[in-house]
């Protein structure tokens, strides 16, 4: 009964139900935003397993601080901000620990691919994105892959609109060069 009800409920209603202990309501929030968080984390990190962990952490953090969510921004924007911050922290941590070696954006080789295989395209896009510096990558992922507006992107990253636009242009240019080398365009 509740399951049918929560499926069509608004985000605010789902949050209120979750605060009253309904795990079905929270599960619906997760299902609703899973795809968006997957796009952001996998595109940012490039590794599905690590992205999965960050995705889980995003929702767990939201669950713990749900009572403080005032609804000033859309839930999607809020979750995207959490996910992007977690991925940027993870990238920083990896850099510090020297874990990023051959996969770093400085010295990564992109394989050439067969355009007919979508899985390969996904892999090449992921690997190409990894070659971009995180500051460009985050803007490109939010704006082009997730489809947030430039204004929303600037809100999520807490950056001025002008900075987002210049990073977008630079990121797009760099990504075009990388993808051209991979014979995708």
């Amino acid at each position: 009964m509740e399951k049918v009800h929560v499926k069509s409920a608004s985000d605010v209603d789902l949050i209120n139900l979750s605060l009253n202990g309904s795990m079905d309501a929270f599960s619906t929030i997760v299902s609703r935003y899973e795809s968006m968080i997957a796009k952001i984390t996998i595109s940012m990190i490039g590794n599905k397993d690590d992205a999965d962990d960050i995705g889980q952490e995003t929702f767990i953090r939201f669950y713990k601080s749900m009572d403080k969510f005032k609804g000033d921004s859309k839930l999607g924007t809020y979750l995207a901000r959490t996910a992007i911050n977690l991925t940027l922290n993870e990238i920083k941590k990896r850099k510090k620990r020297w874990l990023v070696t051959t996969n770093s954006y400085e010295n990564f080789d992109i394989p050439s691919i067969d355009n007919e295989e979508s899985q390969d395209i996904t892999n090449v896009v992921n690997e190409s994105l990894k070659k971009l510096e995180p500051k460009y990558r985050s803007v490109v992922v939010l704006r082009f892959i997730q489809g947030f507006s430039t204004k929303e992107t600037s809100e999520i990253l807490e950056l001025p609109l002008g900075t987002v636009l210049s990073r977008l242009s630079r990121g797009q240019q760099k990504l075009k060069e990388i993808i051209t080398k991979a014979d995708m365009i």
Binding site: F26, I42, K48, V140, I179
Partner: peptide
């Protein structure tokens, strides 16, 4: 072409993501 490639880039988590989150919580 680049915009099209990026828009069609839809990576997904492995199946059962929602259950994994709920179980962890």
């Amino acid at each position: 072409k680049l915009t099209e490639i990026l828009l069609n880039h839809n990576p997904e988590f492995n199946d059962g993501f929602s259950e994994r989150v709920i179980n962890k919580i």
